[in-house]
Nucleic acid binder design. Structure first.
Lengths: 182, 182
DNA sequence: GCCAGAAAGCTATGCCAATTAGCCAGAGCG
DNA sequence: CGCTCTGGCTAATTGGCATAGCTTTCTGGC
């Protein structure tokens, strides 16, 4: 039995591929099959199914943070907020199952908490451009996060059944948010 | 073996009790144990685990719709919107696992679609008070739903880790929404 | 080049949830 | 009294997760 040359990174890659292929909850057996290995062999690389989910979550939150940071750099004010929100939605639509694999509550795990805090920092940096700091900034990030997360989640799961253009709805959401930041 | 006097309604009740007791995904075995019966016996009353989830979802969406309707009746304008949003959040906080058991995408099942449409009607009725109809009203309901769903979901799952008062953040969210409806 | 040990596969096994099949008790009706 | 239907049950299958323990392959020191 030749070695497959697996690493934790490769296992997470495989899980992400399955997620992108439409499998909303890949099992260990599926991931193992995808990399050409028997299921128990994965335990040599990742700490079980929940551990793999955790690694996937870390990867996804890092990816999303990078996208948001890239979108916000070089912009400010309403322009930056719009870029942030578009990047957020684009990511969710491009990788709906990856996004769904990201836990809402990253506390309790130091790695995830750090990653989430990095994401928060991006938003806070944009809000600083409005002169928003301290508690006001926190309340504003919650508005942004609630709206973006809610919209993206609903849209990715097919929650907007009616014919109206979701992009138009999203533009309205963005306008609503930027108006609340003045 | 004396009869337990089960009905589909009683089985759903038991599942809801487990959800309220903190079990985020009660198994058939758990539900069966709660009503004092062996797991396979449940199949005489509900069509399997996924069927039970479906019945639970129907019940929850009906409950939430009733709360929203009750909150909106006798109010109009910003007052009605605020009441709607408060009722929404209150329900999610009171029954977080019930809310999580409600599918985002009710289409594909006629019963659920009808229930969801009833919920939509409540929101549309409130928006009619602003003179919003047709596509504008749909876009507005999406803003409301995205914000309320996003905020409630995040809060119920412990997503707001920082110390700032979530109720204050929510008031800001409500103000943001009503401002967008003028 | 060789060998020891670590790393990375494997098979076998156990547990749990869901489901199906098929048996049995008892309540209600003629 | 007995028939039949309903709602329980036990037994057995399937599939996912996890662990134990064996075997093979690679690597580093000599």
């Amino acid at each position: 039995m030749p070695r497959a040359g697996l690493t934790p990174v490769a296992v997470v890659d495989a899980a992400l591929e399955l997620l992108d292929a439409g499998d909303s909850a890949p099992t260990l057996a599926a991931v193992a099959g995808h990399v050409g290995v028997a299921a128990p062999s994965l335990y040599k690389h990742v700490p079980g199914a929940s551990g793999l989910r955790h690694l996937v979550a870390l990867r996804v939150i890092g990816e999303l943070t990078a996208r948001l940071r890239a979108a916000a750099t070089g912009r400010s004010g309403d322009d930056a907020v719009a870029a942030l929100l578009h990047a957020w939605r684009d990511y969710v639509l491009a990788h709906p199952h990856r996004y769904a694999a990201m836990p809402v509550q990253p506390l309790g795990d130091p790695d995830l908490a750090r990653a989430a805090s990095g994401m928060l920092d991006v938003v806070l940096a944009v809000l600083a451009g409005y002169g928003l700091t301290g508690q006001d900034a926190i309340h504003a990030t919650r508005r942004i996060r609630a709206a973006a997360h809610g919209f993206a989640t609903l849209e990715a799961q097919g929650g907007f059944g009616l014919a109206e253009d979701a992009s138009e709805s999203y533009q309205g959401l963005i306008d609503m948010i930027t108006a609340s930041l003045q």
